[in-house]
């Protein structure tokens, strides 16, 4: 990854968060395969005509040349690999893209390699650009992310006693990290979420399959609600707090598809 010049390295990255810095600079939180989350400044990126500005918008998958710094790195060159245009020009896809990006950032550690999380995010943003089943993608992503970071919920046996679960309705505890059998559910005062047999089957299918295999899965309304509650409580427990972008996702979830307003062209 290191280029010929000292203190300069090149890396692929996905832009996950940014804030304004100084007169016209931008501070970026980037997910990279070799260094996990890194923070880097992009000088002049907020000025029109900036060579960096258009490449480093949120959710852009980019190749960067970076000058290494003690606290903050500095971006010297940026090239877009994929801007996921279909994601950023549709409010529903966009809200889901930001949601999975935030999840990936929250489970990643600064300067710790995260090649599997990085690849999962890039692939998922690619699928999000085309899929007709974006909610299933978000659920699959959350489950896969938990699996590759070592926080996979226990879905096969009771998480407390380890006994195999009967093919029946059960409950899920985020605090204990999985499904509970009838005799263990009454022990403890943690919040329990209902998990019907149908919900458990879908969760197991999501956990063991790649996204293309579950993309066309037809999930019932009640199962969707239960899966949503189970996965959210589990991810919130793992990252220690709620995912901020979930509120916006919930607000626009059922809106009809809204594309961009054509620039300079009247939308009537």
């Amino acid at each position: 990854m290191t280029s010929g010049r000292p203190n300069l390295f090149t890396t692929e990255a996905v832009v996950l968060r940014h804030s304004d810095l100084g007169e016209a600079d931008r501070l970026l939180w980037l997910l990279t395969p070799q260094r996990g989350v890194i923070r880097a400044t992009a000088r002049g990126a907020r000025k029109p005509g900036s060579k960096l500005g258009g490449h480093i918008d949120l959710l852009c998958y980019v190749k960067l040349s970076i000058r290494e710094g003690r606290e903050l790195h500095g971006i010297s060159q940026a090239d877009t690999i994929d801007a996921f245009r279909n994601v950023r020009t549709d409010l529903g896809r966009l809200s889901r893209g930001l949601n999975i990006g935030e999840l990936a950032e929250r489970v990643s550690v600064e300067d710790a390699p995260a090649p599997a999380v990085f690849r999962l995010l890039v692939n998922s943003l690619g699928w999000l650009a085309t899929t007709q089943n974006a909610d299933t993608l978000v659920r699959w992503f959350a489950l896969r992310l938990m699996t590759i970071t070592g926080f996979k919920p226990e879905l096969g046996a009771c998480v407390d006693c380890g006994n195999e679960l009967e093919p029946d309705d059960h409950v899920f505890s985020a605090e204990r990290g999985g499904l509970l059998c009838p005799s263990c559910r009454s022990q403890g005062s943690d919040a329990l979420h209902p998990a019907s047999l149908g919900t458990i089957k879908v969760l197991r299918h999501l956990a063991r399959s790649d996204f293309p295999a579950v993309e066309s899965l037809n999930i019932g309304a009640e199962e969707r609600r239960q899966i949503e509650r189970i996965l959210r409580s589990h991810t919130n427990f793992v990252i220690g707090r709620g995912v901020l972008s979930s509120a916006f996702l919930d607000e626009v979830r059922d809106w009809p598809e809204v594309g961009p307003v054509p620039g300079g062209i009247r939308a009537d």
């Binding site: 966009l94 809204v258 594309g259």
Partner: peptide, 14 residues
């Protein structure tokens, strides 16, 4: 003309 500005515009359009 960035992702947050576009999101705001699409929201208002809706």
């Amino acid at each position: 003309p960035n992702l947050e500005g576009e999101a705001t515009s699409m929201y208002l359009q809706r």
